[in-house]
Amino acid sequence: MRNLLAVIDKEMKVYFASPVAYGVLTVFLLVSGYFFYNILSVFIQRSMMMAVQAQQFGGGAPAMDVPALVERNFFGIVSTIILFMVPMITMATFADERRRATIELLLTSPLTHFQLILGKFLAAMGFFVVMLLPTLVYHAFLYLYSSPKMALGPVLSGYLGLLLLGAALISLGIFISTLTESQMVAASVTFGVLLILWVIDLSAQAAGPLVQEILGYVSILNHFDDFSKGVVDSSSLVVYLSFVFLGLFLTYRSIESWRWRT
């Protein structure tokens, strides 16, 4: 346990000593803030137009749940922005340890591979959480100014979904980082792989029924939709957690095989 905490502590220090961390945080906040503002104004406009139309043509105004729509679209967008951020978070995890030969220190210390990998994974998750935290403010404003008060369930499930999606992508990114000594290579390959996952999701929506079903299960983004609607589906939970497990397992094997090869 002490070993694990030591690894997490060191990883966090290394994260926040690097300009990359601040770049990632800034870009993420800017982009997510921009989209939140845009989504919000689009839906407010639309609801106002509908209210005007309802007045002109008579009859009651159709119910339009603006906050729910905003949340849903916002989480959808954020899940995509994350694809661009995760490679930056995970690229250094193992690649940089190899480049500066500190991996020799880590692997010759009385530290199990499991502690090392889990420590790095949890630290990356910690950074990811720090990145998401400021976005809570958006929802707080939405909540303050919504009337009737918006439901908080979808916000919670949305964040749960983001954490799970983030965990799955991060474990994958960490695995890819073990394959090379270069952060740049790790980042580009991770980005490429995440992009493929995203494309699978898009093509799944366009494909025939059978293919759609198969691709739908493979696509990790697809499973995110439920969460942004406020639905916590246990099958999605299982998919994400097995993804995390797979990523960390591959990382473990990769380090082992790397020791045997070099």
């Binding site: 290394v14 000593a17 500066r100 030969a101 500190t102 020799e104 220190l105």
Partner: peptide, 16 residues
């Protein structure tokens, strides 16, 4: 590992 202190060829340091 508990009983060994190891200085590799390149000292394994974290610059930051």
């Amino acid at each position: 590992k508990r009983r060994i202190g190891y200085l590799p060829e390149h000292p394994p340091l974290y610059d930051e």
